[in-house]
Write a protein that binds this DNA or RNA. Structure first.
Length: 423
RNA sequence: GGUGGGUUGCCCGAGUGGCUAAAGGGGACGGGCUGUAAACCCGUUGGCGUAAUGUCUACGAAGGUUCGAAUCCUUCACCCACCA
């Protein structure tokens, strides 16, 4: 199966610029790149898709370049955005570039004949004299054509927001990136999210006009959910790749909780499992959905790829502890580990003997914003202390409230844990 | 610049003197069912309070009328429509 067939089978090929891309890829190894915006200091599950694309290319023998946008990040991509973007400071961009680069390095192989490389477009964009840029690059772009692009049109129609000259120029800078990588690295293929189509085509045109050479591009799909809500959000917000922002446990849970209708697509997008294995999991979704074998396989594969085996093992252990309902058998070290990322409050040991009500202490520990809310939850049967339901709002807090010597576990609803640590 | 309409709780939206902490919907949260799902059903959704016909805060802002105002009056701010 050719690389393009493989990508197509996985649903990863959205649009391609040339019908003969498949033949070109089969002919000889190609150098390809995808760009990553340093708008935050971490990538998230949505922005992982182009990395997956690069991984497939590298596995097929091609040479991937990770391009981080240390230059373009100072401008901001206006494509399909509703409003002018706030500019990041140079320091922020530099910091984000460094962190994202480190994150990305973990997905590709930097050794061997088709070792991946990392480039930062700040290296050439920040050195670019404006006059040269306008003479050599700007001349090749028709404003009329740029104005008609979908990616900028909505900003032109919106009189409240408009688009600045700065953002308008973004597309040229990105086209220039392709030219620069073509010249410096003999790079002939760009991939990106579906919102990058216009920028990719602009780059290909520029290389053709200046060098008369043909380069290629394709886009990967935007990841969507079958129920129409936005992909990549958990209860607590965006799902990031950085374990400091989204813990491996939350990350694992995010995948485990995917809807049946979406899991098959995500297995194809995000894992490198064999076709037969994926088809088998798809059959299991249809035949015995309650076992969630596909979700488990998805969560395991992606968590392992992003966070490694040890973090995956912890995430599974924590999941079992939290959802088995019984915490009693666990020792303090395990508890600390399992609940490491859960919000915790430190309470002086002395309150245990003070005859305080549980609710009072929980409000003080900021487990609840008000006593009324705590009472309401108890009334609805949603508060648990050490996995036992609390049904009396007047329950006192004392030594019997402890799970182990120093720890008590409060649960709000099914999944919302708080750790109380007594010192 | 003129005229008219608007600004209500997380969001939308009803309410034109007391029965209004404010209908209804959405969202969110909890419970049930279940597969840590979807759908569905039930409940909760300003603070304090065990509770009350309790108390404080709240209907763009500030004043005023009234026993009593989200509701009436005045000024200010912002938004929208039409006219110039």
């Amino acid at each position: 199966m050719s690389l393009i067939e493989e990508l197509r089978w996985r649903g990863l090929l959205h649009q391609q610029t040339h019908d003969d891309l498949e033949a070109r890829l089969a002919k000889e190894p190609i150098t390809c790149y995808a760009g990553f915006d340093p708008t935050a200091d971490s990538l998230h599950v949505g922005s992982m898709i182009p990395i997956i694309g690069l991984m497939h290319l590298q596995r097929a023998g091609h040479r991937p370049i990770i391009l981080v946008g240390g230059g373009t990040g100072l401008i901001g991509d206006p494509s399909f955005k509703a409003a002018e973007r706030a500019l990041l400071t140079k320091e922020d961009v530099a910091r984000n570039v460094a962190r994202i680069q480190k994150q990305l390095e973990h997905f590709l192989d930097f050794t061997g004949p088709n070792a991946a490389v990392v480039r930062d477009n700040g290296d050439w964009l920040s050195q670019l004299p404006l006059i040269d840029f306008l003479r050599d690059i700007g001349k090749h772009f028709s404003v009329n054509a740029m104005l008609s692009k979908d990616s900028v049109r909505q900003r032109l129609e919106d009189r409240d927001h408009g688009i600045s000259y700065t953002e308008f120029t973004y597309s040229l800078l990105q086209a220039y990136d392709f030219l620069a990588l073509f010249e410096k690295e003999a790079c002939r293929l760009q991939l990106g999210g579906s919102d990058q189509w216009g920028n990719i085509v602009a780059g290909i045109d520029l290389v053709r006009r200046i060098h008369g050479e043909e380069t290629y591009g394709f886009t990967l799909p935007l990841v969507t959910k079958s129920d129409g809500s936005k992909f990549g959000k958990s209860e607590t917000g965006n799902v990031w790749l950085d374990p400091a922002r989204t813990s491996p446990y939350t990350f694992y849970q995010f995948w485990l909780n995917q809807a049946d209708a979406d899991t098959s697509r995500y297995l194809r997008f995000y894992t490198f499992l064999e076709h037969a294995a994926i088809e088998d999991l798809e059959r299991q979704i249809a035949e015995e959905p309650h076992k969630r074998a596909a979700q488990r396989a998805l969560a395991e594969a992606v968590t392992r790829m992003v966070h490694g085996d040890a973090a995956l093992a912890n995430a599974i252990e924590a999941s079992e502890a939290m959802f088995s309902g019984d915490l009693k058998g666990l020792d303090e070290a395990t508890l600390n580990d399992v609940f490491a990322e859960v919000p915790s409050a430190v309470i002086p040991h002395s309150v245990l003997g003070a005859g305080r009500g549980l609710i009072d202490v929980l409000v003080e520990a900021q487990v609840f914003p008000s006593k009324g809310e705590a009472r309401r939850l108890i009334q609805n049967g949603g508060l648990y202390l050490n996995s036992e339901r609390i049904d009396d709002a007047e329950t006192p807090l004392n030594a019997a409230s402890l799970l182990t010597g120093n720890i008590a576990i409060v649960r709000k609803g099914k999944k919302n844990y708080h750790l109380l640590r007594f010192e």
